[in-house]
């Protein structure tokens, strides 16, 4: 019963938000609290874990929640209902775009949309960077950004840039912070 309930709640809460994973995670927090699956501390731990898990944060949150509620079955069910409906919509939309983008008016609309998407990516970058733009972290942030800019200019691959950044981060350390990074998922 709880797996079915979990599946319904994750399906409902993740697939009705447009603003990214933070909004979905807030809806999941409220639902999980109502179902007595998670208290505030549990939500904080899950949020931190989701931000440290590679990939899409809200999917990691769903897997963690599913695992806490119903073990591995819950994790798999939560992951499927959180990702498959959106994937089907995206694939259908992409297929439609391929068929209609030969029409000039469609191409103009797409060009405008692409410029808007650029703004959305910039917004994601801002959400990722914002927690580190304080006085205590400023020089560390500037150093990492400078290293990324130089390595990127030298055409170093992103994976190597991440490894170099991790090594520099471990070397120089960070100011202790209670807040986990705020990321757009």
């Amino acid at each position: 019963m709880s797996v079915r309930r979990l599946g319904w709640i994750v399906l409902r809460d993740v697939n009705r938000t447009l603003g990214g994973g933070i909004a979905s995670m807030e809806l999941l927090r409220r639902s999980a609290a109502k179902e007595r699956w998670l208290d505030e501390r549990g939500h904080a731990v899950l949020t931190a874990v989701s931000r440290l898990t590679p990939g899409t944060n809200v999917l990691a949150y769903c897997v963690g929640l599913g695992w806490l509620v119903s073990g591995w079955i819950g994790a798999i069910v939560a992951l499927i209902v959180a990702s498959v409906p959106a994937a089907v919509m995206i694939a259908a939309l992409a297929a439609t775009l391929v068929r209609i983008d030969r029409y000039p008016i469609v191409r103009v609309i797409i060009a405008v949309g692409v410029l808007a998407a650029t703004g959305l990516v910039a917004s994601s970058a801002w959400h990722l960077m914002r927690p580190y733009l304080n006085r205590a972290s400023a020089w560390r942030t500037a150093l990492i950004a400078a290293v990324v800019a130089v390595l990127s200019w030298l055409d170093v691959t992103p994976v190597r840039i991440f490894l170099a950044s991790a090594a520099i981060g471990a070397l120089i350390g960070m100011p202790a912070s209670a807040d986990a990074p705020s990321v757009d998922s």
Partner: peptide, 12 residues
């Protein structure tokens, strides 16, 4: 600190 640095690099 290493995890934070990777998140920063991701944003940059």
């Amino acid at each position: 600190a290493a995890v934070d640095a990777v998140v920063m690099a991701s944003a940059a």
